[in-house]
Design a binder for these strands. Structure first.
Length: 609
RNA sequence: GCCUCCGUGGGGGAGCAGAGUCCCCGCCACCCUGUCACGGUGGAGACCGCGGGUGCGAAUCCCGCCGGAGGCGCCA
């Protein structure tokens, strides 16, 4: 930028620099051969670099240059010198479309071999080739317009995050990558110690303990674009192995202080990735709604609700109390619920929709999807129910369901039953499926919310009281609640931020008081000695004056994914791993030399089979 | 660990029991002096993922394996 343009050995301008007013100048450009249009006596080449595309012309007047231009291979790197000329008819698709460079000198610097995947996307095709090839030749994939832009926008988002955090008074830290395994959470990645035979570092699943220690060290506001390592299986929105969080923590702060910092950040981000061809997404509600955990479960059947559309669930437990239908009666008798989801118009084609939804729900591991569909009664008066529960429920019960859900003719009503959570969750899946099928969610809207008041404890598989989320979060009501309430009634200062049905982060007001910590663990069946053994360093820090503190850690990759409307997290990561956590470009993981293992005091035992 | 879907020239797709597989892009050769996701003519390139089975006949149906993706489990 500070370089005098004409003195640079490779180029005087980049490929998105030349404009109408540059006509007549002698320039030098460098870049990749993007597209070539060969007319024998005249060759047009679109030259591409990071910044854009400029058209080159090789004309007969230039003699053997035209011949050499005809031989150019797509994606070769070339340097050219020439004169900027105005084009009679410009190309409005290019920023440089008013001009072209009439080439007088051509240097072919790096010849490209035949390409395994095409960088210039052919007519009518997409750039979504087979994932395996895209990952193996990621350097080519990254040249393509969409992915190249995604990675640049990722930089813009991360820079906006840093700017925002600094503006809010946060200090950026680095915390150790070689650290300790912690007993909770996902599987760890382990790194063997050469110096200490038989001992291992663990890569951090998150810098959780470090940031809390920094709070105890008096830094007030911490943040980090933090790499996190978890040995867990992939999903479309979850990278295997490693990913990044905007990790933040605040001392002397309440839950609302954390929410404020985060929602002010997310308010800015849509504009950061906007461009003329990509208008900024609209934020549905600001400030972001604060919704309680049980409220979103009851209404949307999920703790990460997509709030861009309605289709809320109805509780029909009271409407069906006393039913003779065994499954519902059992659920109600054991303190559970029966929930209903009204799907307008989906009863029109009889069983079709219900059967399709039931199949989808079964693939997710649910038992089934009892349902009713309603049609107008004889002579158009009243409603008649049909469907899998027609015989199981009385006409009166069906009518009460219609009343409770507001169901009308042609509507389908699906049911969930069991515990409060189970009854709602299956319908939450159905809600998402129907929302997707019918395009109910506006893709140009970001509907954020904070989900608050998670239960502190839940019953585990064996019916014992266990932490339901993060054991280091503060129970609401503190020690009094732990001593006075039914553990299952206690709520945590534990929260998530959710956008369009995707969980961006969870966070918590931390438990910084050893007395409350010991008691909280005691109720979950851990002795004081257990706590001291596993978390002694945290307790130690808390025993010498710890400020109340709270934080959060929104996923960076997921955030960018949502902002850019990408369905898969690999589309916003430069060098992602595949579903099985392999890097196909560098062939990792791979075997290592026997000598290396020996130094690390490690012997491989291959699995049987 | 489990479930679902998908593997067809270099890339993308169609064909889903019956003729010599087909189409678009790319590649090679030739033609074309204003193209611009150029156009035209010709050509090369495929063990239809691998192995087994059923059939007169398999890219197509069945079984197993391998590979990829999505999901469940898992993700304090």
């Amino acid at each position: 930028m500070t370089q005098a343009p004409t003195s640079h050995p490779y180029r005087s301008h980049h490929c998105n620099a030349l404009r109408r007013e540059d006509a007549g100048r002698t320039v030098r450009l460098a870049g990749w051969v993007y597209r070539k249009r060969d007319q024998k006596h005249q060759v047009f080449v679109d030259l591409r670099d990071h910044h854009g595309v400029t058209q080159l012309v090789f004309d007969e007047g230039a003699g053997e240059l035209v011949e050499r231009a005809r031989e150019l291979r797509a994606e070769s790197v070339v340097f050219v010198e020439g004169t900027v000329a105005l084009r009679e008819k410009g190309n409005p698709k290019l920023d440089t479309g008013d001009v072209e460079v009439v080439v007088s000198r051509l240097t072919i610097d790096s010849i490209a071999a035949e390409l395994p995947i095409q960088v210039a996307i052919p007519k009518g095709e997409s750039d979504r080739d087979g994932e395996e090839l895209r990952l193996r030749y990621r350097f080519l994939d990254l040249r393509r317009e969409r992915l190249h832009r995604n990675i640049v926008l990722r930089d813009a988002v991360i820079r906006a995050m840093r700017d925002h955090m600094h503006a809010e008074g946060f200090v950026e830290f680095h915390t150790p990558i070689l650290t300790n395994s912690s007993p909770e959470g996902a599987r760890d990645y382990l790194v063997p110690s050469r110096v200490h035979p038989g001992k291992f570092f663990a890569l951090p699943q998150a810098p959780q303990q470090w940031k809390q220690l920094l709070m105890c060290s008096g830094y007030d506001r911490y943040f980090q674009i933090a790499p996190c390592f978890r040995d867990e299986d992939a999903r479309a929105d979850r990278a295997p192995g490693e990913f990044y969080q905007l990790d933040l923590e605040m001392a002397f702060a309440t839950q609302d202080d954390v929410f404020g910092v985060v929602e002010r950040l997310y308010q800015k981000l849509p504009a950061v990735v906007a461009s003329p061809d990509r208008p900024a997404k609209k934020i549905a509600h600001f400030p972001f709604p604060r919704l309680q955990y049980w409220d979103v479960i009851d209404r949307f059947g999920s703790d990460k609700p997509d709030l861009r559309f309605g289709l809320e669930l109805t509780d029909v437990t009271d409407a069906l109390r006393g039913t003779g239908f065994g499954l519902f009666a059992d659920a109600i008798a054991s303190g559970g619920r029966v929930k209903a989801l009204r799907l307008p118009g989906l009863g029109k084609d009889g069983k079709g929709a219900a059967r399709r939804l039931e199949k989808a729900v079964k693939e997710k591991g649910y038992g089934g999807l009892p349902h009713l569909f309603f049609k107008a009664g004889p002579g158009g008066a009243g409603l008649e129910a049909d469907g899998s529960l027609k015989k199981a429920l009385t006409a009166d019960e069906a009518a009460r369901v219609a009343q409770a859900t507001g169901a009308a003719a042609d509507d389908l009503v699906c049911f969930g039953f069991g515990t409060r959570l189970a009854a709602a969750k299956v319908l939450g899946e159905v809600r998402l499926l129907v929302g997707r099928e019918q395009g109910l969610a506006d893709p140009d809207v970001l509907s954020f919310c904070f989900v608050t008041d998670y239960p502190f404890y839940e019953l585990d598989d064996e019916g014992k009281v266990a932490f339901s989320h993060n054991p280091f979060s503060m129970p609401q009501g503190g020690l009094e609640a732990l001593n006075g309430l039914d553990p299952l009634e206690i709520r945590a200062f534990q929260y998530d931020i959710v956008c369009n049905g995707i969980e961006l982060s969870s966070g918590a007001v931390r438990n910084h008081r050893p007395d409350i910590m010991y008691r909280a663990f005691e109720l979950a069946g851990y002795s004081q000695a257990d706590v001291d053994r596993e978390f002694g360093h945290m307790i130690a820090a808390f025993r010498f004056g710890a400020p109340p503190h709270a934080g959060m850690a929104p996923g960076v990759d997921r955030t960018i994914m949502i902002l850019l409307d990408e369905p898969n997290i690999r589309e916003v990561v430069a060098f992602p791993k595949n579903q099985r956590c392999q890097d196909l470009l560098v062939n990792a993981p791979s075997e290592v030399r026997p000598k290396q293992l020996e130094e690390l005091h490690i012997r491989i035992v291959h699995p049987a089979s």
